[in-house]
Simulated assay, not measured.
Amino acid sequence: MPASTPIARSKTAALARVLDVIPKGYYRYTQGTVSASKAESLARKFHLRYGIGCTPAQRVTKRKRGLANALLVMYWPEGGQQVKWLLLATDGDGTDGERLLVVADKPRLMWLGYKLVRRPERGRTAWTWRRPSSEMAEHHALIAEYSNKRNINSLGALLQRLANQPGFHGVREQSSRLFEEARRQGYSGELPYLYFVQKLPHGERLWLQ
């Protein structure tokens, strides 16, 4: 089968793929933005250099030879003119051409407006996405402003927008705290349901050969 890499059309799909692969050893990264007209050539370049479209068997062979495996996460919304990309790699040789950071180091990885953080889960460490603290401060300020002005419609719309954001554990936890703040400020309307992120396909296939 020809080599390929998935294209995520939604932020949720792109962010979910990152959480899927970090536990598999893909914890070194670099990121960037490219115009849509150059996105396919960029992906093919990364395949030629780092084998982002390798099959599972080819990845096993590379690992046994001491070479790094790599994959490319692309957020390319339908009709979008800009493509956000994240190159992730395992330990090993062969990625000297990239300045790779480590997801566990600070500052934490920020991508597509969300921050990668660790969280405890059943006696082990897992990863999730959260809103940055600056965005949370803005939401708290808006809740206070709408509550003070008794602007119930605007406050309800804000809470719905929060509920519509990707339902990763960290984001849902933050949304719950914001909802509690709205209640403390006197909001008596119905609170939106906070959905969990379901298992998602990683995206459409972009053929690399």
Rank of each mutant, 00 (worst) to 15 (best):
K24Y: 14
Q82T: 14
K62D: 04
L112G: 00
V102Y: 15
D91Y: 01
Y114V: 05
T125N: 08
G80F: 05
T61E: 14
A13Y: 02
L109C: 09
L67N: 10
L15S: 02
R59V: 02
G94C: 08
W111F: 11
K24E: 15
V83L: 03
S133E: 15
M110W: 02
V34M: 02
A57L: 12
M74F: 04
A68H: 13
K38W: 01
G53Y: 07
A89Q: 10
D96C: 00
E121Q: 13
T30M: 08
Q58Y: 01
C54Y: 10
A16L: 12
T95N: 03
L101Y: 10
M74L: 15
A57P: 00
K62G: 11
A36E: 14
L19W: 09
Y75G: 00
A43P: 00
L86N: 03
V34C: 05
Y114H: 12
K38M: 11
L100A: 07
G92V: 05
T30E: 13
P23Q: 06
T33F: 09
K11D: 03
P132Y: 06
S10A: 09
L72Q: 00
G80D: 10
V60C: 07
Y27I: 10
P23Y: 08
K84C: 10
R65K: 14
A70Q: 03
R119S: 11
G66M: 04
G92Y: 09
V18M: 04
R122N: 14
K24N: 15
R122E: 13
W129H: 09
Y75N: 08
A89N: 07
V83R: 00
R122Q: 12
T12I: 12
P120Y: 05
L48A: 13
K11C: 07
L67I: 00
T61H: 11
K24T: 12
W111L: 09
R108Y: 01
P77I: 05
Y27V: 12
T61W: 02
L109D: 06
W111D: 06
L86Q: 05
V18Q: 07
E78Y: 02
L86E: 12
R108K: 11
A68I: 07
G32T: 12
R17W: 13
L86F: 04
G97S: 10
A39R: 10
A126E: 08
A8T: 08
D93I: 10
S134D: 13
P77M: 02
Y27F: 13
E121P: 00
E121H: 12
V60K: 14
Q58T: 06
A70K: 04
L100T: 06
L88D: 02
D93S: 13
G92E: 10
M110Q: 14
D20L: 07
Y27C: 06
Y29G: 01
L109S: 11
L116R: 04
R17D: 07
K45G: 01
E98T: 08
R63Y: 09
A13H: 04
P56H: 09
W85M: 02
L67E: 14
K84E: 15
V21M: 12
T90R: 09
T90I: 07
V60N: 05
W111H: 15
T128I: 08
T33N: 10
K62E: 10
W129S: 06
D91E: 13
D105V: 01
R9Q: 13
A8R: 05
A43E: 08
T61G: 12
G53C: 09
A70P: 07
A126P: 00
P120I: 01
T55Y: 10
